[in-house]
């Protein structure tokens, strides 16, 4: 369904541009958010409050073009890009709609883990097995049947966020209550896998 929505990024995009595009692609896969996105017209600029990154989003003709920096004549809205994208309060309806689109529903932890595994399984250095233990639901899921598993434990919401590319890095997940059992090499691979999901590359 998201294939029909044009979400373009500039050549040589910055991390913020890539992660905003990923969030919008996720929204484009949700019918009501897709309708919201395709109906927008106008320009919004966002400036991160955590670093010097900024991005301009141009909505037109049912799609969006995203590039880094703030276009001349556009007033940037402060953005806090933690796990969620929080915009400073603004009466601008377009900006409010953009904030909604930048925070699509987080998938259930099982779905997020399955997508994460599917996106990275077989990549050089990625664990051959993955065991995800949800502490709040006292359930677990395992990928890569007989292979030694890298283990990720945590509450449902933290697992869902980590596996769906929320937060700057996989280490963000550890700061939110996720724990892991495995090697440093696999931790590095998990960080790489998180980038892949977060940046949609």
């Amino acid at each position: 369904m998201s294939g029909a929505v044009r979400i373009e990024v500039e050549a040589d995009p910055t991390p913020l541009v890539l992660s905003l595009a990923r969030a919008l692609r996720e929204s484009a896969a949700v019918p009501e958010l897709r309708d919201l996105l395709t109906g927008l017209t106008g320009t919004v600029a966002l400036r991160s409050q955590l670093d010097a990154q900024a991005a301009t989003l141009l909505f037109a003709e049912g799609g969006v073009d995203i590039h880094h920096g703030v276009d001349e004549g556009v007033e940037a809205i402060p953005l806090v890009p933690y796990s969620d994208y929080a915009l400073a309060e603004t009466p601008d309806e377009l900006a409010s709609a953009v904030e909604t689109l930048l925070n699509p529903p987080v998938p259930a932890w099982r779905d997020a883990a399955a997508s994460f595994w599917a996106a990275n399984q077989g990549s050089y250095g990625f664990p051959e097995g993955l065991r995800v233990v949800c502490q709040t639901e006292e359930e677990e899921i395992r990928f890569g049947e007989d292979a030694p598993a890298y283990e990720v434990h945590g509450p449902a919401d933290a697992l869902a966020a980590a596996f769906s590319g929320r937060g700057e890095t996989f280490l963000f997940a550890i700061a939110t209550g996720v724990t892991v059992v495995g090697s440093v090499a696999h931790l590095s691979a998990m960080c790489g896998a998180h980038w892949k999901v977060r940046f949609g590359v």
Partner: peptide, 13 residues
């Protein structure tokens, strides 16, 4: 530097 596959000579420091 995390995020890259480790060669075999890299381990637990």
């Amino acid at each position: 530097i995390l995020g890259i596959p480790f060669p075999s000579w890299r381990g637990e420091l």
